[in-house]
Design a protein around this nucleic acid. Sequence first.
DNA 1: GTAGGGTTAG
Length: 589
Amino acid sequence: MTASLRNVITRHNPITLLDSSCSPVTLAHVHQIHAQLLVHGRLNHPLLFVQFLAAVALLSPGNTAPSSPQHRDRQLLLLYSQRLLDYSPHPPTTFALNSLIRAHSRGPDPASAFRFYRRLLCSPDALSPDRFTFTFLVGACGGGGPSSSAAAGAIAHAAALRRGFVSDPHVHSSLIRMYAQFGLLDAARRVYDELPDPDLVSRTAMLGALAAAGDIVLARELFDSMPRRDTIAWNAMIAGYSQVGRSREALELFSSMQSEGVRVSAATLVSVLTACAHLGALDQGRWVHAYVQRNRLRVTVTLGTALVDMYSKCGDVGRGMDVFRRMEEKNVYAWSTAMSGLAMHGAGRECLDLFELMKERGVLPTGVTFVSVLRGCSVAGLVEEGRRHFDSMRDQYGIDPWHEHYGCMVDMYGRAGRLDDAVRFIDSMPIEPHAGAWGALLNACRIYRNVEMGEYAMKKMVETESKNHGAYVLLSNIYAESRNWGGVNDVRESMKAKGVRKEPGCSVIEVGGEVHEFFVGDNSHPRYGEIEVMLREMSRRLRSAGYAAKTNAVMFDIEEEEEEDALRRHGAEVGDRLRADCLGRGREH
DNA sequence: GTAGGGTTAG
């Protein structure tokens, strides 16, 4: 039960039917409380009446599946508070309407917050909006829900401007965040520049806006220029680095944060875990997990999800599932993350079992969930089941498949060797196939050595995305596997002619908490000499154990004699195996 | 009596 509602009951009414541990509060509870308050005549006090109204309105937020009983209850609670307002024995106040605007800003239809704003303006009691009104109203426009819109946000902004509230610190920072949510960086900046000396919160909001727009350099400049930085400001900067994939900088900043003695929060750790997941930095990720346990931090859904993701992406899916099982609350993010981890590690059946469990628990899948479901089917070779799930997306959940889902389906048919079905599937697509769909087909052609269809897929892929080097590399590998060196050469020539460049491959490994990055042919590491000696030794032992490097298909754009050498240092396929076989040993799994 | 900035899945 929320503190505010408890206060209403206990402070003013000694007879309470409710014990403080009974949460969540349902409509039935509210009826009981309402009855008690009425019986004791408490609602005759305007102040208590409006406090009750506000408490009921604010019980409603939360993202629950539309089909769940909690969701219906929450909707009804919102309606209940409106009825309280409609049938109130007291004239409405700005406070009461603010509460409803606020409640709607967190609900499923934030735009309806405007209904109460209008009611405020048109009220016969000459009410006027205050700084709270605009903070809630602007907040209702962002959020990214189905009814949030930048146009509504601009209207709220204009109204706040007309009434002189944009320099209120709360309104100011809400405006910056709202515009940033719509990707309107310039609008956010204009608001920001309006104040000569924005406070810490507005600065942090602007920092976040810059980072979200990808301007991490400016974000860092703002961060460095801040006269004061609290935990949230640090979090915003670390999250910014994590989100744009500058994971090492995220970890570096986290380390400075600690040496400066700034308090670390759960949100900090979530961003740090994202960075660890990106880098495959298992040791650092484990350190974060230990930190959580040592400090007895509550494993919230967000933190738990980040841990599951980190363990899965760093190769320890078992530990990830341990964390997942222990999580108290599991939302669709948590389930999708766990499913993605299982699919990633080839545990397709387990991924699908988890999907069934998730539905049983009343959690509604999203498009992202279905990406994991289809991957699970793909890796487990469950073509028919995959097809059923794919069809259920639209039929049962009203989700129109995205490019990713079509790509997964092609991959599924392709991996199963059903190349003709894959092509038929592409032909039947209601949207224009993207490079990824052709890429999946091309990859299947490589697996099943179908040169002719591979050439066709390559042609289509290049038509869709002329600079996609992946297409060239895949086709070149097909030629290489069939020992068609002329074909390999042709691909190389045509890449040169079209100015397509293959990005140098890059491997990342973490040793003793430090992340090391290696590009193809890169010998700039300070301990390169030692590494080289070790690689030779590993190569020798692998050979004596009967392992033959698969050089024919992997190589691209490298001279034959360099091949095996380069493979040991790098290589998408073989490099990973080397790493898993040799360096990964000794780690606890 | 109400409020703002940072955190999770492809």
